[in-house]
């Protein structure tokens, strides 16, 4: 069973998103939460990096964190899903383990 990876820091500030994406296995999921949501905005320089992550992996953004930083679903780059805390819990259930890239 795959892994849920969580990233909570802006990729503009730290390397945790990059490290996370470098360590994905087939079918893994990535959740961008807290300040990490800024990396998912369309037009930003990390959109290509996210797209280049394994095509079999899904990338989600925690909606309340996105809203708190003045962004809406429309602002997200293509192919990125939006989840609430319940969706975060569902991702943790659907994967065998949760790996936090602090």
């Amino acid at each position: 069973m795959p892994t849920l990876h969580t990233v909570n820091k802006s990729p503009y500030e730290r390397s945790s998103l990059r490290s996370c994406l470098d360590h994905l296995a087939e079918g893994d999921s990535v959740l961008m939460m807290e300040d990490a949501v800024v990396g998912a905005r369309r037009g930003g320089k990390f959109v290509e990096v996210l797209k280049a992550a394994r095509p079999s992996c899904t990338v989600s953004v925690l909606a309340p964190d996105l809203a708190a930083r003045g962004m809406k679903a429309d602002d997200l780059a293509e192919g990125i899903a939006l989840v609430d805390y319940g969706g975060f819990v569902d991702l943790a259930v659907a994967n065998a383990r949760v790996c936090a890239w602090l």
Binding site: P2, T3, H23, A25, A96, R97, C99, W101
Partner: peptide, 18 residues
Amino acid sequence: DRSEMVRLIAEQDVVLSF
């Protein structure tokens, strides 16, 4: 190698990071 790290993570029950 990084690819071995990927496999290592995938075989765990619990991953702790601080």
